[in-house]
Design a protein around this nucleic acid. Structure first.
Lengths: 211, 211
DNA sequence: AATAAAACATGACAAAAGTCATATTTAAAA
DNA sequence: TTTTAAATATGACTTTTGTCATGTTTTATT
């Protein structure tokens, strides 16, 4: 197996050096460089060709989230976030930006290496607790609202209602009279067996009907 | 390190035996037993005390999703789902039921072992592609709507509106008159500078104001 | 060419939703 | 203990929504 080429990005000297030492003594890894912030990490990556970035979130100049975005977009390598706390929003931002893993720092060296290898091999790694949260916040597809049976025009109306527009506003947007909008809404409500536009908006947005 | 105690659950003889052989030859693992379905896996677990379940999803009698639920609720061990395809809904169901990992089967033995160890050490593992989907479907908290500045009563109203209830229905639920409900809504709309309840519902649900 | 189905339009009416002035209760402050 | 400010409640009134019956125009389908 080729060595896994690593870039470490962390604004703490302690963490950076510690990590480097842990990895340097292992023949499976090669640390290409250490960075104090996202920008430096990207620079290192442009000269070499790292496999994995070990990325902190809080860093001056360019934080880990932004850096991740750039790295993923430019295909510079895979990002494994290593941080001290698991703020839900940060996790989500990181993942949306393409991070392949999100771990807190207090793992044993052995375990850390295992997880870098996992990411290298194409498997995402996540703190258990984070995985739970992620699952909680993910809407099991509510399969509620279904576009089938609606004309394009009706969908225009539905989407506008679900933006919170009034009939007059919808009429303006679609160049039809308010009366026509009302008409469409009546038809749509009948199809879904709903009684008013707010219920329609809620149903469209959440998949849930009142009851 | 103690051996990691494993229960394998898969309805294919081939997979079951293959997995067993792979793990048995490694001193870090001990296969406690193999099961053809979820029920059998649970039975094995009740007598022994496994650390990890390698669990297929499609299985007769009791599938992997159900089994996972039972196992997690009764604290029988950690579940690593090993399946052939990555149906998004199945992933979500599995995670909601407490699975710690979700992998497709075609990993190398070495890699598979790594991942079992990761799960054992408290880190969830997920197929990269799945992680991406998961991130996509997770709403980054839209920070739009803010409960600050609202009384408990007002929040009752707002939530009811966001369920698509009418003023009459809200009044019935909260034991106040329709008129009072209207009043609250007027106050709330003024605070958010919105013009009607549907816009409020949309704002509450999506964090977006019309415009 | 005939048919059917959207899309679009009206107006009259009914039903909710939203506004406003006003009043009572409660909790906090002076 | 007044005083004040929220929170809560109500009804009269206005506006917006939603319903319904009806009709025109355009666009596919047969």
């Amino acid at each position: 197996m080729d060595k896994i080429k690593i870039v470490i990005a962390d604004d703490s000297d302690f963490v950076r050096d510690g990590m480097r030492i842990i990895l340097d003594v292992d023949k499976d890894f090669e640390v290409l460089g250490c960075a104090r912030n996202g920008r430096e990490a990207i620079e290192i990556a442009k000269e070499n060709a790292p496999d994995i970035f070990l990325m902190d979130i809080q860093m001056p100049e360019m934080d880990g989230i932004e850096a991740t975005k750039y790295i993923v977009e430019n295909n510079l390598g895979k990002v494994l976030i290593l941080t001290t706390f698991d703020d839900d929003e940060l996790v989500q931002s990181a993942l949306k930006n393409g991070a392949k893993g999100y771990l807190i720092k207090n793992h044993t060296p052995e375990h850390l290496k295992q997880m870098i290898k996992s990411v290298y091999n194409g498997t995402g790694v996540m703190e258990e607790a984070i995985l739970e949260n992620l699952a909680k916040n993910t809407d099991v597809k509510v399969s509620g609202f279904c576009e089938d049976g609606y004309t394009a025009r009706e969908m225009d109306i539905i989407k506008a209602v679900a933006e919170g527009l009034s009939n007059k506003e919808i009429g303006n947007r679609l160049f039809i009279t308010e009366g026509t909008v009302k008409n469409y809404i009546t038809t749509i409500l009948a199809k879904e067996n709903l009684s008013h536009r707010t219920a329609l908006a809620v149903y469209y947005l959440t998949g849930k009907k009142q009851g």
